[in-house]
Structure formats: structure tokens, C-alpha cells
Design a protein around this nucleic acid. Sequence first.
RNA 1: GGCGCCAUGGUGUAACUGGUUAACACGCCGCCCUCUCAAGGCGGAGAGUUCGGGUUCGAUCCCCGAUGGCGCUACCA
Length: 488
Amino acid sequence: MSLSSTPRVRIAPSPTGDPHVGTAYIGLINFLVARQGGGKFVLRIEDTDRTRFVPTSEQMIFDALRWIGLSWDEGPDVGGPFGPYRQSERTEIYQKHAEILLANGAAYRCFCTPEELEASRKQQIAAKMAPRYAGICRKLSEATIESNLAAGKPFVIRMRVPWEGSTTFRDELRGDITFEHTNVDDQVLMKSDGFPTYHLANVVDDHLMQITDVIRAEEWISSTPKHVLLYQFFGWELPRFWHMPLLRNADKSKISKRKNPVSLVYYRQAGFLPQTVLNFLGLMGGGMPADINNSTEKFTLEEMIQHFSIKNIRLGGPVFDLTKLKWLNGEYLRALSPDDFYTALRSTVLADDYLKEIAALIQTRIETLGQFGDLTGFFFADDILPAPEVFLPKKRTLEETLAFVVEQLTLLEATDWTTAALEPALKQLGDSHGWLVKENFMLLRAILTGSTMSPPLLESMVVFGKARTLDRLRRFLDAQKKSAGQKK
RNA sequence: GGCGCCAUGGUGUAACUGGUUAACACGCCGCCCUCUCAAGGCGGAGAGUUCGGGUUCGAUCCCCGAUGGCGCUACCA
């Protein structure tokens, strides 16, 4: 493999939930680099964490990336010469490579239990030391290892980071970055369940898949020395590293679902056009030349391929500003022909499937068809903000109510979006907090629909969708926070 | 706490790899258009480039330090 050859780049999302805007952002940059260099864009699914695995997630990721217009040359669903592209199907490969490391002493088996590790970590923190693996299993005798193995003791495989020295690597956007080895932990490479961690899988796959440029988010900088060390252990050539700035919430923290809609499903369902999202992402961090960026700020994927330059990326973390996103979307919407605009409506917020599901909810509650809008308005609205008279239960204070909404939100985020899952979860939450089912459900109803009368709550939530429902709750809380701030 | 990264109006970006009254867009304010609201047009407020040193004839741009923000610090990615 030669790094001067045409680029092979990849994105490697984890199927742990909804497709993330951050994935789309990094995907876009990788896509552009691949297209510009006449190279290949690879999609690899990093499903090595079975505790966070969400079965429906992978398909949602495919759909979302295709929706915004990014397509990949190689991936689990389209195949390619370096498959499989799903890490869970490559476990023997990682196993084999872990053994190579074991054999040449670059890695070792660690029999420490999670409890022991936790205790050691606490101790180190108390002693104001940087928490890192204490190294107990670093030099177990061959005999001890054999007997532990024979006894069937579970173990992980850790990389042996040299005690001394440092590792320097080049970040193509920042220059050389150095980490002292005293600050690099003996990272776990293989978990006790036989799956690799990101660090091992990522390095092995990037090498085997002949990735030339690793373009990923900035949060990976601190673990890059581990990756570089692994490449050296294997005697492999390093790819180039490009660390992109992290998308931010309005308060500049790393973008998160708690503070911002982060699911591409949300953006689709809320009625953003794919070209808007793509264009907006292209604005993040710059990269487009001044004459284009400065004059219109509006450009297509094709124009990005034409003019974008990854070397011009700004390193400050850009705030993902919904206000500007909406403006941009408005621009695209207005530019549509009346026919296309109508088609856009009919394929999203007025889609047949959606209308059908809604119709089913109100048929028993309707007297004339003309009342349809009265009964279902909240399904088609974006800004629903009930007044306290509507959402506040009679015997509750504003404070305890809002605190309970936070609990509801946290619960809902973690609950499967079916009535069968939602009902017991919500009821249990209410029970444990001393909230009557009536109060509990009415509160949610008010926030979701803006009214105390509505089609059945749970069914409505399911039809409205998880992403949009959660967004409505978050916006409600934000609005309440703001109005509380104004009163002070 | 330790380590690392970053730093231009409220937000996103621009300013030929040192020379500009620091530009554009979003947002905000006002005016025009108009049956309303948008859209559209016109205009305005808002940063002397986080701060302090240095290099230079000259720093947004180069160097050092401080401060601040962010990230990482898992058998998560």
C-alpha cells in the first residue's frame, strides 16, 4: 500500500441508536475527499459493543446517509473487495491479530476483575494520580497465565505501552502532536467476551481495508497515540490522520441529544430537505473557498466536490445553529417549483402512511371530516408550547412538575418506541415518583399536543415518532427554563 | 486533577502563507412594499480579532505566556 495512491477513506458508525448528524458531517467530509481524489468511500459498521447494540440502528444509518445523498462504494450492504464490513463478522481476524501481539510481547492477558480495576482507579484518583492500568498483569509468569487459563478465568488482552518515551504523530490539520507514554494507558484490545475494542478493530480494519486517510472527529486525538503504537507493533504503515472539529451545542459543548436534535431521523421528519442538511454541514468548519462561501453560502454536493478543500477547515468547534439551518431550509423550500413543493409535503409531513396512522386515531372521535384539523393539529405543527394552566397538574408546583418532565424525558429516551414498551415504563416511573397515571399522562399529553384533549397519548407518540416527540419535550423544557430566567 | 486540542461580532464563515475604514451570511433593530404574516428591497446596531508580552517599519495572521472553551481520561465508540 502506498499513501500516495488514490484515497481510500471510511466512516465507521456504531449502530447504537439513531443516525447522528456528527456521522453525517464526518461522512460528508470523507465522501468529498474520496470523490475529489477519485478514490473510494467505505462504510464500516462498528458493532463490537453488544451491550449498546440496537438492531434497528444499522438500517436507519444506511437510510439516513442515503437520504442526505451520501453513497458508499463499499459497505455491508453493497459489498466490496475488503469485506466483511461489519466488525461483528470479523472477530476471528481480530483474534488472530491479538495473538500476534501476544506472541511478540506487544500485548498481554489481564485477569483483573472489573471490581479490582474500579478499586484501583478510585485509589489513584484519591491520590490525585492519573487513573491508568496499574500493570499488575503486565508481567505474570508463564505458569500463572497457564493456570489462570486452565482455571477458566476470564481475561482481556491489553496493549503493552512502553513505560518510557513518547509517541508523536502528525495531524494533517494541526501538525505534530506528542503524547508522553506516561499518559497513554495500557488499553484493552480484546474484551473478555471475545470482541475487540474500537482501538484494535479500527487499526486492524483500516490497515486491511487499505485506508489511506483516517478522517474522524477531534475526540479521537487523545487515543491516536495508542493507534500509532499498534501500527508500529504490527509493523504497518501509518495512514494520514485528519481530526475534524466537533459540532457543538449553542453553549459550545459537544453536540448532544440533550441540548440539540441530533438524529437525522428528526431532521427528516421535521421537514428539512436533505440538500439543506448537506449544505449546512458543508458550512461547518468552512472548507469552501471564499468567493463561493462568501457570496452565497448555498452550494450543492456537486459544488462541494468541485471546490471544497479539507485543508481549509477551521479548527474551532462550530455551533450547529438551528436558526440558521431553518433559514437555509426556507431558502431551498422557496426555490422549489410549486409542484416540487407539494411533492415534498406529500412525501413527508403529509405522507399517506402518516395520514393513515393519524386517521386511525381520530375516527371514533370525529363527527364531521371538517374537524380533522381540530383534532390533529399538533401532528403537523412544530411549535407547541402549552401554558401552565394547561400542563400544570392542579396539586403540583411548577418546580416539581418540570423536574418530573426531566425524568420522563430521560426515561423516554431509553425506551423502545412502542405502546407496549412505553405504557409500563411510564407507569412505573409515575409510581416511583408518586405521580398518578392521570397526572403523568396528562402532563405528557399537554406538552405533546398543547391541549388536555387529544387522541390516545401513547399511540399519538408512536405515530408522531420518537425523534420529534423527544424534541418537543426538550423544547418545552427549554422554553420553561427561559421564562423562569426572565421572571428572575 | 492529568493530558491534549482550540480561540475573528450572539452564531457560521472571510480577510492573497504580515500592510483592509476587519468583509459576507444568519439572527436582531428600523424603514419600504403590503389586507395580515412571511418573502423581497433598503438601512442600522454589533468584533479592532480573548488578554499580556515578544519578533517586525507594520500583526487577525509568526513566537511565548496567561485566561477561557472543549475533548479524552471505560472490558463505549
